[in-house]
Design a protein around this nucleic acid. Structure first.
Lengths: 151, 151
DNA sequence: GTCGCTGCAAAACATTTGCAAGAGG
DNA sequence: CCTCTTGCAAATGTTTTGCAGCGAC
């Protein structure tokens, strides 16, 4: 929680966050920095509501509307993705735009990231060899439904 | 539109629809028969709203609330699935409960079913060999994002 | 200084719920 | 008949919008 420069920067790597926003062509406002940080920090692909709850603990004046607008602009700029989810009523967001897969836990409703270059290669090879009729694939994401193993 | 038995049965295979409902332990009401038929007929995984629009062309008195309740009971009974979608605000439903994959077209927003036992086998083999840390997989669904090839 | 972003509050949507009356088995 | 389902309407939850003022660049 405490860091060497905590009087100026709420996050350990505020400079990095600024850079990410600048790179995406977005203004680095106080609100967006906190929202982006929360999105990166929160586990399991949060909803706008969950981001907002996290965010107001650092900056109580940030409104839910602003969170929605910021997340929209992040998605438009390619900084963030929307996650496809069958359960629940709200949209979920993912700050990680690299190609990866998701584990859906039927018990806890969690969405867990799963990354495996070997699996990616396997899938790409499969479609390279087989092809898809009248469809140009761009990216792949495997949804694995199941439950966490209780020890 | 016209069929040999259209005075009694709106659908060609009403008997089959009744059987599906009975098998799931659900009462075969007039409304559910029409809703299930629409769900099977409509292309690209419709929303409750889209099912309702289709349904009222056959039975104008069916309310949107009834469509929601019927779809809920179908899902609870395992007759129908909810489809995971990142785009749009409404839930989408899929009458096909067999394991299959989805093509997401970024141009038309369509969700197209894709079925390939060879791919299923490949994925199952991969996880059988490799395993997942602390997770018991139950089903797999590959989301393929891309665009339809224009001829 | 300009223009994009924020906060607020209202509106637009999407989904759920409660309950009296009706229909299925 | 008994119970589950329907239709209606109101409640709840989620996302969008409009606009005046503020702040980043």
């Amino acid at each position: 929680m405490a860091s060497s420069t905590d009087s100026f920067f709420p996050a350990p790597d505020a400079g990095h966050l600024r850079a990410r926003l600048a790179q995406a062509g977005l203004r680095a406002t106080r609100q967006r920095l906190v929202i982006l940080e929360s999105l990166l920090t929160l586990p399991g692909h949060p909803t706008a509501e969950q981001v907002h709850r996290q965010v107001i603990s650092q900056e109580p004046s940030i409104s839910l509307g602003t969170v929605y607008k910021a997340l929209d602009s992040f998605v438009a700029a390619g900084l963030t993705r929307r996650v496809a989810a069958a359960e629940g009523t709200s949209r979920r967001y993912d700050a990680d735009c690299t190609e990866h897969h998701h584990l859906f836990c039927t018990e806890t409703q969690e969405i867990i990231d799963y990354c495996d270059p070997q699996l990616d290669a396997l899938i790409r090879e499969f479609f390279a060899a087989k092809g898809l009729h009248d469809f140009q694939p761009h990216s792949f994401s495997l949804h694995i439904t199941g439950s966490k193993v209780v020890k």
